[in-house]
């Protein structure tokens, strides 16, 4: 069987496997201490700036703390959690999160992979095309929101103007609950697909040219060459990318908040939007923290599933 492609090796196909320096007998004690000195700053930093706030957030989620009186919260056990799971609005936010994330991940993986395959061959203007295809990733989210809310503008936006000039119906993209989630997802896919493209492009360059040749000699067309030759090489990369895309979608805030604030009538109200609104609009810090913790648990579950699938696939490929 073919050797398994190392998922961690994207883009650095020629790297050497480092041996640990700490295995030589000289200066054992110093060697053992050295790595801890090197990571000390990062570890302390993570403990103080993410670990401590996270613990604080866990604690908050068990209290009834209010924004205007943040030190007077009383311990109320799991009441916030039990009230969340009885709350239809929260259930709806979970559904929105899952729909939004699934659509964004699938959309960006598809567009990104297609773009990477298109950019992998040689053609005139390739450098320029590639540069333009990376633009969306570089545009700051706040600027992207300004552009998209103008493009989506109901009366004067270019999207509606273009649609009506070819005889199609206009929509209130951001103000009509039927279309808002679609519009937000579209803007998100636009923003993140270049990342997928660049990752897949790097992985495609590791596919041996002889394999393509062999498939061509066998008479496989372009689509089948991709499916049988490139795809097996890409799968590990696509799995990692899908994981990153998913957990990033779960926590994506700016694009949704600034485009719609979760509205209209809750149609784009994802979990992180609820977390923010519960804290800063409804002043319920405790309940907001409980929502955030639920989100974190979801991301953790997804991550565990991905690693499990990844390992299962690795074992299968090794057989």
């Amino acid at each position: 069987m073919k050797e398994r492609v190392d998922v961690t090796d994207v883009g650095t196909p020629t790297r050497t496997t480092p041996r640990a320096l700490g295995t030589t007998p000289r200066g054992q004690r110093g060697r053992r201490l050295a790595p801890y000195l090197f990571i000390a700053a990062a570890a302390v930093y993570l403990l103080l700036l993410t670990g401590a706030p996270l613990l604080d957030g866990l604690w908050l989620s068990l209290t009834d703390t209010q924004l205007l009186n943040p030190t007077e919260g009383a311990f109320i056990g799991i009441h916030n959690y039990s009230s969340l799971f009885a709350d239809a609005e929260f259930a709806h936010a979970l559904v929105v999160t899952i729909v939004y994330s699934t659509a964004t991940v699938l959309g960006s993986l598809t567009v990104g992979t297609v773009a990477a395959v298109a950019m992998n061959g040689a053609f005139r203007g390739r450098v320029l095309a590639r540069a333009i295809l990376t633009f969306p990733w570089a545009v700051p989210s706040v600027a992207a929101v300004l552009i998209f809310s103008w493009i989506y503008n109901k009366d004067s936006g270019v999207l509606n103007q273009a649609l009506s000039s070819v005889g199609l119906a206009q929509h209130g993209w951001l103000v009509d609950p039927t279309w808002s989630l679609f519009a937000v997802t579209l803007a998100s896919v636009w923003k993140v697909f270049p990342f997928v493209m660049l990752v897949v492009l790097a992985a495609l360059q590791a596919v041996p040219e002889e394999l393509y040749e062999a498939a061509r000699v066998d008479g496989a067309d372009a689509f089948n060459r991709f499916r049988t030759v490139a795809l097996p090489f890409l799968l590990p990369t696509l799995r990692v990318t899908a994981l990153l895309m998913t957990i990033w979608s779960f926590r994506r805030f700016e694009i949704i908040w600034l485009l719609t604030q979760g509205g209209p009538v809750g149609s784009t109200n994802s979990l992180v939007i609820s977390v923010y609104r519960e804290a800063f609009v409804n002043s319920e810090l405790g309940r907001s923290a409980a929502m955030g913790v639920v989100g974190l648990v979801l991301s953790t579950i997804v991550t565990v599933i991905f690693f499990y699938v990844d390992r299962g696939a690795a074992r299968k490929e090794a057989l």
Partner: peptide
């Protein structure tokens, strides 16, 4: 994986 919206209050 951490949502900033969760960390912002602490």
């Amino acid at each position: 994986m951490l949502p900033e919206a969760l960390l912002v209050v602490p």
